[in-house]
Amino acid sequence: MAEVALRQETAEVAIPSRAQVLVRMRLADKAFQYLTHAMALGVLALLGCIILALMIGSLPAFRAFGFEFLLTQRWNPVTEKFGALAPIYGTIVTSFIAMAIAVPIGLLVAMFLTELCPLWLRRPIAIAVELLAGIPSIIYGIWGLFVFAPFLQVHVQPLLIDAFGEVPILSSLFAGPPYGIGTLTAGLILAIMVLPFITSISRDVFEAVPAVLKESAYGLGCTTWEVFRNVVLPYTRVGVIGGMMLALGRALGETMAVTFVIGNAHKIAPSILAPGTTISATIANEFTEAVGDLYTAALIALGLILFGITLVVLALARYLLLRVERRLGA
């Protein structure tokens, strides 16, 4: 600041140079504004470029297979026949398993953190959960491969196969030899991975419930569970759903945690114990080895499909969370 004042004082002596300084300042001011504006618009351009690049890259695949690309299972690099159904199916099934396990557990943990936990323990646990949410997914992957998959293979999967062997529908769902790696394992790893994420979002949302609301419910004689079920959950419904969608977006696009344990088999098996594949795992495994334009294009087309699905899910999540923010702001 002193610098500016000084410069203007000296400029006072020579009037033309003062005008020059002012002009230069105004120019610099405008330049900075336009620069920041350009960078902000750059974000929009970035999204546009990503979509455009994926579209152009996948064009040969869609031209060769048309709409059928989405509906066929075959994936044969030798004859160059590709279909995306198996990876799409695997992506959806693993994410479904992950959400089915992680959402109830995450909500219960968040309830523990906001309603039950002694005050002195809340911050440490909350911080630990948030730190865990930031651990790179490759860590979960390597653990899944070396520790979790062998454990499942020896101790859990034989039990599942035995237990459901006689039940009509479940027997095919849990059929086959216990490989260890497979769709179920991938789903479980994903569940462990998104759990801290779900917990920390739901905790944030639950904490936004006005204390007065909860206190009046307690004052009427509600139990803790009834307060949670009838006051906290309805009040935070939109936010919770938004948070879940955000977690779903993560699960759908997760690469490393899944690639290690899914088994990479391009077929849709009725059993969730069997190896399968997901879109991201297919790309991660095969992209550098893909020979020929059509193979590469098919993989990029898979990427485009994944990006499309996650964009819709994430946009919906952000829209719901935005609604919550607006209501809290009002």
């Binding site: 999204l47 990503i50 994926l54 696009g253 790309i283 990427g303 996650t310």
Partner: peptide, 19 residues
Amino acid sequence: VRFINDILLSAPSIIVGLF
């Protein structure tokens, strides 16, 4: 921009690699 940025924030990173 904020909306798009929030989406990019959680977009799958493998897509960035493809891009």
